[in-house]
Amino acid sequence: MTACSSDTRRLAPDDSDHRVARLAAVALVLALVDAGLPSPLPGVKPGLANIVTLIALYRYGLGAAVWVSGLRIVGAGLLFGSLMTPGFLLSLAGGLASLAGLAAAHRLPARGFGPVTASLVAAFCHIGGQLALARLILIPSDGILYFVPAFALAALVTGTVNGVLAAKLLEPDHETD
């Protein structure tokens, strides 16, 4: 069977596809900014792209957050040429862990818990996932535990800052689309 040009099928992207693509694009830019910032310890980054994931989560639900996060991780891997390298795998492990954390945090009652909680949980899950993977395959030694408090402190700070920024951007009078 041969395919000719008249056989092309069009997949019509709907509104939610456009939304996800837009948010993922913003997340990619923020990931680039992130990578450009100097870091005191390898792996400690502000994680600005997570603000976009949070906005996707609160505006459009978990599915959109998963898409935006996944597209950002793979897209950043392609842009940095780090696809399938240890750094990319660490990023993937952290991303998956923090999505799991977000899914859990999103179920908390919205009256008491806002984006800051989600952001903090995601940040801690992120370092947790990364450290677990690093301990398992990259640095099979308990020496890595020595760095855990530093990473936890970084997660505390960046999680709070990103959460507050996301909360600010999620205020009704903001157009973040």
Binding site: G114, V116, L120, Y146, A152, L156
Partner: peptide, 29 residues
């Protein structure tokens, strides 16, 4: 307008800060 940090957020922040301090003490102490 809602506060940027809701009560539960403060609780989460406090719990995780305590956890971080505990980690630091136990692993660096």
């Amino acid at each position: 307008m809602r506060a940027l940090l809701r009560p539960g957020d403060w609780l989460t922040l406090a719990l995780l800060a305590a956890a971080t301090a505990l980690l630091a003490v136990s692993l660096w102490g």
